[in-house]
Every structure is written in structure tokens, then in C-alpha cells.
Design a protein around this nucleic acid. Structure first.
Length: 193
DNA sequence: ACAACGATCAACT
DNA sequence: GTTGATCGTTGTC
């Protein structure tokens, strides 16, 4: 359990950074469905990324969850990350597995889900989670809204989205990445936090 | 059928 | 600042 501290918006077929830029396909079809549903995809052949579908059915859009500030269950997050990362070739040797385990044990809690691939790894998510209703209060993976008096008084900074240069200068420059200013769980270089 | 390319991360210089 | 790992999705032939 934790709080989302960084995300990116991908809105509509026109958005040349979005998976919907080629229209509806087998992979992105959940983006065309109702909002509040999980969309988990694989990037770079290695990392799963969690998105929340937004906008009404027929209007493809999603929000990529880029970083979470862990509040509870950090032991399980470490275990889930170890399970996910242990599958990779570099960690398949005894020495590699030991190294990965050491590194994880020393990792501060606030770095456990500090990046889109790490969010999915820390919560044990892969593509099979696509379609889960994140607004259902009994769902094993769900969003919860903070009560008004629990919302922390923080600055939210907007920047360009990360890793979308292929979209062209216009779409790549849109300030659709939102992050809690200065929060240690936010991903990327210190200058972008 | 095939080649190119990522909504990334960690290790290294 | 640079680079390798790794494979599903997509567009093209």
C-alpha cells in the first residue's frame, strides 16, 4: 500500500506518444473501454507498467503510474521485486541472485516503487492484471481516495513526459507528467524531482 | 514471415 | 553520460 506521487497522462488517438496512436489493437483495447480499469503492458521486453484507464468508453486514454511512496507492506514489495527480478538472466546465477538480494535489502523504502517498471514489480503485477477494476473496493488491486482532511499540502510539478521523443516535439513537450515536488519516491534525475 | 523498436533500469566509465 | 539486457507489438513486405 502506498501513495501515488508521480504519473503521466496519455490522452486520445491523436496523442502520438500514446499506445492508442495506431488506433485500436489487441494490446490497447482496454484503453477503449470504461475508465477505472487496469492496463498493464510490457516495455523494452523486460518491464511491466501499470496504467489506469481514464475517459469514457470509446475515448482511449490512460494514466501511467510512475512512482508510489510505500506506506505499508514493504516486506512484501521487496519479496515481489525479488521474484520478478530473479527471473532475469543476470540474476539467474547464484552470485547474481545474491547480489540482487543484497541490493534490494539495502534499498530505502522510498525507492521500492520509484519508477514505472518498479511500481509493477513492487506490487507483483504483470500483463495478466489488465482488466482488473481498480475502483472496486474488494479488488486485490485498487485505488482509494484520501479524505479531504488527509490530503497532504504538497506542490505538484508538471513536466514533459519521459521517454517519448518518438512522438515528435509537439506531443513530447506536453506537460503531462505530474509529480510531487521534491518527493524522494519520485523517479528520474534529481533535477526532475 | 520479418525487422525494428520501445511510456525502463542498473551497471559502468 | 553511456550502454546492454530482452521480447511482445507493430508496421511492412
Amino acid at each position: 500500500m502506498g501513495r501515488i506521487v508521480e504519473l503521466e497522462a496519455y490522452i486520445g488517438q491523436d496523442d502520438q506518444a500514446s499506445h492508442a496512436r495506431f488506433g485500436q489493437t489487441a494490446r490497447n483495447q482496454v484503453m477503449y473501454g470504461p475508465p477505472g480499469i487496469a492496463y498493464v503492458y510490457l516495455v523494452y521486453g523486460m518491464y511491466d507498467c501499470l496504467n489506469v484507464v481514464t475517459e469514457p468508453a470509446g475515448s482511449p486514454a490512460a494514466v501511467l503510474i510512475r512512482a508510489v511512496d510505500p506506506l505499508e507492506g514493504m516486506d512484501r514489495m521487496r519479496a515481489d521485486r525479488l521474484a520478478v527480478e530473479g527471473r532475469r538472466r543476470a540474476a539467474r546465477t547464484d552470485a547474481g541472485a545474491a547480489l540482487a538480494g543484497d541490493r534490494l535489502a539495502r534499498l530505502p523504502d522510498q525507492r521500492l516503487a520509484s519508477g514505472p517498471g518498479l511500481v509493477a514489480a513492487a506490487f507483483g503485477l504483470d500483463r495478466t492484471w489488465t482488466g482488473v477494476d481498480l475502483c472496486d473496493p474488494v479488488s486485490p488491486l485498487r485505488l482509494e481516495r484520501l479524505a479531504a482532511d488527509e490530503v497532504p499540502d504538497v506542490d505538484v510539478r508538471t513536466t514533459a513526459r519521459i521517454g517519448v521523443g518518438y512522438a515528435g516535439p509537439d506531443w513530447a513537450a506536453r506537460p503531462w507528467r505530474l509529480a510531487v515536488a521534491g518527493h524522494p519516491a519520485v523517479s528520474g534525475p534529481r533535477s526532475a524531482r
